[in-house]
Design a binder for these strands. Structure first.
Lengths: 340, 340
DNA sequence: CTGTTAGCGCCTTCAA
DNA sequence: TTGAAGGCGCTAACAG
């Protein structure tokens, strides 16, 4: 890589002049300016962004921490994150924090040393370790957490309004006449807890019972397949299942079909997220759509705002809490409740 | 962020001494060393990695360029890439090159200015623009392309042996008695071309005809749904379809089921990749497994080798060409050919 | 118009 | 054992 110094030597001028010429600043004769720019472009001169970062204390980069890049849901959020960063001229340093070799806190520390201007993390399926949490708390720059609520909202947060989304889903099922509504929930993650609570709340308000054996934990396709198989072979089975997400709904769908149940005639299914698979399975899933890409964009927006404010290291006094609206998308996995 | 200078001031020593103390180098009395390290840790001193990068001309970071982070296939490759980089202590700068705001070549240039040590790009569904290609050619550091073969192999390349994989798939179908084998291919991408050629080659060698109306382009689920619907409603329809990938196979599967065809009794389907969905659809897909994570790891390995060699900017004299083996995974979407 | 100087944060070499 | 100086690539404020 050629440096200004070399260009200066070649052009027989000082580095300062080269600097001005390349920045098209006044104070350089158009003649020497042209000459310098000519040499620079011929030699493929590229300014060193690292140096610039050092000088003005802004690296124009942020760390994006995720724990499963291959997750389709996360992929869509990541798309939004990248879009937002790109538009703002920021670079994304991607890190996955579930490796063996270098632990998450290790990598996070590296990011700090690389002087990223902030961190945006998502979607943390497993709660972070204390060490990781500590690193996050002492991180030099704002931290945004997407989707999951951790440890009493100490970080800035952007998520979706899971409660309202779930209530809408339950309302939809009730309009269809369902009273025996079960739930494949995910107790390990905060969104899972919120969604289950919302179901229970809605049912309680409607004066409907939720039997324990209509509930089962299931956070993945495989979980759901097994759990739904058990749940649906009971004598007293629900006529509708609210699932933690679309993958879980898909697993439940397969279980139902395997058991010879028709969906939605015998069993109504509702997913959450509205992933591409929702329209690819048969029947297409009724689901609570989350604005996934928007989630990423809003996270970035919040982060850049905080960066611009020059937020001090350490925790914010009043962390922002943003909830994006969801939308119930009715497709063909839900229908009128079967007559008893 | 505290700097060495500040620590030096506080400890009443020179920066040089602080430098040595923090690096645990000899030449500092254990007493002052302790004092300095104490202050540093209390003030949360973090070395500035950017400075280090400038000094030794290695940024320990590479650019990872992809064009669809939400793509499941790419996600699994990306996982391998991140794993490889992480193990080697490298950081990943993620960039997506299909935005409106800043074009791919723009972003790539930014990466160069940020002094990344190399580029790894995947999976380029659409061929790059001339401008992008130019930026890639003149990139200061080695460039690795994954999966897709571009423009006469001018870059280092790691992919899978699609030809052998496809031949194995065809052989499997022939063993099952299939002779009317069609193909949903993807003419836009190099892997699509290779796979179709392999099908044609296998059929030719077997003395079997491939009718034009057994072939249709389809690169996505939606494409496949439409194409397969048309293809399967013909009087003379194939009894087996080799699909460009698992998503395409899924689309074809749905089309077949919609038409009342049983899979595999009436129609055999073979996918490519072995994504999670392959075991989630009914029936589970027979497919050609690609070592996706390994693909990413090998790409990184190759890249780091080239970096270590200190490869000059510009194109390599003899770009490496690595093909990873595939493996046919037989599940339930293929079965004996129907009797005529 | 051009050159010099100082400084960003750090490391390395050499002198005290 | 410690300090000072030079340099990495660049910018900004001055001096010539």
């Amino acid at each position: 890589m050629v440096s200004m110094k070399e260009i200066a030597a070649i052009c027989q001028v000082s580095v300062g002049t080269v600097s001005k010429a390349l920045a098209n600043q006044p104070g350089v004769s158009s003649e020497t300016g042209e000459r310098i720019r000519g040499v620079a472009s011929r030699l493929r001169y590229r300014p060193n962004a690292l140096v610039r970062s050092i000088q003005n204390g802004r690296s124009m980069s942020v760390a994006v921490a995720c724990n499963a890049v291959e997750d389709p849901w996360g992929g869509m959020v990541l798309r939004g994150v990248l879009a937002g960063l790109c538009e703002a001229g920021y670079e994304a340093l991607l890190l996955q924090w579930d490796w063996q070799v270098r632990s998450g806190e290790h990598m996070l520390r590296s990011m700090g040393e690389r002087r990223v201007d902030g961190v945006i993390m998502f979607p943390p399926a497993t709660p972070p370790t204390p060490a990781y949490l500590h690193e996050l708390r002492t991180f030099p720059g704002p931290v945004i957490v997407l989707d999951q609520q951790w440890s009493r909202q100490e970080f800035h947060f952007v998520g979706t309004d899971d409660r309202l989304g779930t209530l809408a889903a339950v309302a939809h099922l009730r309009e269809l006449g369902h009273t025996a509504i079960g739930c494949l929930h995910a107790p390990e993650v905060s969104t899972g807890v919120v969604r289950l609570q919302a179901v229970l709340e809605a049912m309680r308000r409607a004066g409907l019972a939720v039997r324990d054996h209509w509930l089962a934990p299931a956070a993945t396709f495989a979980d759901a397949l097994a759990a739904a198989s058990r749940l649906l072979t009971q004598a007293d089975r629900p006529t509708a299942l609210l699932c933690f997400n679309d993958e879980v709904a898909w697993g439940a769908l397969n279980a139902a079909l395997d058991l010879g149940l028709r969906v939605p005639a015998d069993l109504a299914l509702v997913g959450f997220a509205d992933l591409p698979l929702a329209v690819q399975v048969r029947p297409p899933l009724t689901t609570v759509r989350q604005p996934k890409e928007e989630l990423g964009r809003q996270g970035v927006r919040l982060l850049l705002e905080r960066i611009a404010e020059g937020e001090r290291q350490g925790l914010p006094l009043t962390p922002a809490q943003v909830l994006l609206p969801t939308e119930l998308v009715v497709r063909h996995s839900t229908g009128p409740a079967p007559q008893r």
